[in-house]
Amino acid sequence: MNLGLQGKTALITGGSKGIGLHTAIVLAEEGANVVIFARGEDELGCAAVQIKEQTGKEALVVIGDVTSAEDVERAVRQTVETFGRLDILVNNAGTSAAAPFQSVELDKWQQDLDLKLFGAIRFSRAALPYLRQRGGAIVNVTASGAKTPGASSLPTSVSRAAGMALTKAMSRDLAADGIRVNTVGIGLIRSHQIEAKWKQSAPDSSWETFARDPGHRIPLGRIGDADEAARVIAFLVSDAASYVTGTSVNIDGGLAASL
């Protein structure tokens, strides 16, 4: 299937590792120009090398923080100055923070919302003038568990649920400009955080054994790979999904309790 991504430009936040990096690789394989944005200079450098080795394309690396309006504006400006356009935004930056309500201090609430919700808002606002020029696509990376939050899931479940509401409202507001906005609800996907849990809880077992532990209660029987999430995101930002907007796609092996 031709995804229609050749020559388009995509900016991916949290693009130095995990889902963000794999999304950049898949989009580059499909012919898109990719911009990876994250805080860690060394990790971004390694990511750019990996993209080049796997796809033959040079990624634009931008160091910055999604909580800084100045960094966000600079990233969008550098993207347009380098490639002349911006067609795709993947708001992926964020980490999991899960604890009981009574143990989450107010400053942790503020930090989580600023990173995950307002980070997406800042980048979407900055990208909007350029997305409007040709139409475009935004994917907000959220969490499938935020649809039916469980105990000890705060503040992440709240910030991710807000990201889902943001997605739906934006899709209605921006449809007239030809901009599609969707979200992917991530479940257990291999990441640095998941790998740290594996090494801490089951240091003598292989990744394959840990990933397929029945205790995860994943209907498909295993933790997913970042590449599997990346390919769904690539579809949603592509021409192949030209009539898809305002929706949420779970990438969680069937773990979520709701659609």
Rank of each mutant, 00 (worst) to 15 (best):
S206M: 07
F210P: 05
A230Q: 08
T209C: 06
T209N: 05
S191V: 06
G224N: 03
S191R: 10
A162L: 14
T167S: 12
T167C: 13
D173W: 12
R231M: 02
A162V: 05
A165E: 12
I194W: 13
A234D: 00
H216E: 00
T183P: 02
R231S: 00
A162W: 11
I186R: 07
S238V: 10
E208F: 03
F210A: 01
R190N: 03
V237Y: 09
K199S: 09
S205P: 00
N182C: 14
L236E: 12
D177L: 05
T209V: 15
A226Q: 01
R231P: 01
S205L: 12
A169Y: 04
W198F: 09
L220W: 08
A175W: 10
A229E: 04
Q200A: 13
F210R: 01
L236Y: 13
R190D: 11
P203W: 14
I189L: 09
D227C: 00
S205N: 04
A230D: 01
A240P: 04
G185I: 12
A176H: 15
E228P: 03
S201H: 11
G187A: 13
A162E: 07
A229Y: 04
V181R: 09
Q200G: 15
Q193W: 12
A226H: 02
A165S: 15
W207I: 09
W198E: 01
S238F: 10
D225G: 06
A162G: 08
K168Q: 11
A169V: 14
L220Y: 01
Q200R: 14
A176M: 12
G163W: 13
A229C: 06
R212M: 11
M170Q: 15
V237R: 09
T183C: 15
R222D: 01
Q193N: 03
D225Q: 15
K199D: 07
S191A: 11
D173V: 15
V237G: 10
P219V: 08
P214Y: 08
A161R: 14
A176L: 10
D177F: 15
A196Q: 13
L236N: 12
I218D: 02
T167L: 10
V181S: 05
